[in-house]
């Protein structure tokens, strides 16, 4: 279970989200080469470490968010609404603990 501190809704179980994948900057379509476009579409860095990725909060605010997550420990160090620039201040991460028991997401 990963607990994702949604910048709109507060901390929620990752089962409420759809994992969109690694966030990559879209190259300018008017100047991009086919090779660069192929890399943008298909190649992912897939590191064992920090990654910037996009999640969609399907069962909450229905917004895309940008998350910095460590792929080994699943620690999350920043969240922000997708499209906004700087990382969200630590406020959202400070464990406002809006989510209760991690396993209480549904009927057993």
């Amino acid at each position: 279970m990963i607990r994702i501190p949604c910048p709109h809704c507060s901390a929620r179980n990752s089962a409420e989200f759809r994992h969109v994948g690694e966030a990559a900057a879209r190259p300018d379509p008017s100047t991009v080469t086919p090779e660069q476009w192929r890399v943008y579409l298909y190649e992912r860095s897939n590191p064992a470490g920090w990654i910037t990725e996009t999640w969609f909060h399907t069962m909450g605010c229905r917004r895309f968010i940008t998350v910095e997550r460590h792929t080994v420990t699943n620690e999350i160090r920043s969240v922000r609404p997708a499209g906004s620039s700087g990382p969200e201040p630590a406020e959202a991460l400070s464990g406002r603990a809006d989510a209760g028991s991690p396993d209480a997401g549904g009927q057993a």
Binding site: C9, R12, N13, A15, E16, M59, G60, C61, R96, A97, D98, A99, G100, S101, P102, A104, G105, G106, Q107
Partner: peptide
């Protein structure tokens, strides 16, 4: 069936949220 904290401190009268309830 809902993981969000329903205590008065987090979910007081008038609070609203969207989440998973029984999936």
């Amino acid at each position: 069936v809902c993981a969000v904290d329903l205590s008065d401190a987090v979910t007081p009268e008038g609070a609203a949220f969207r989440s998973s309830v029984a999936k």
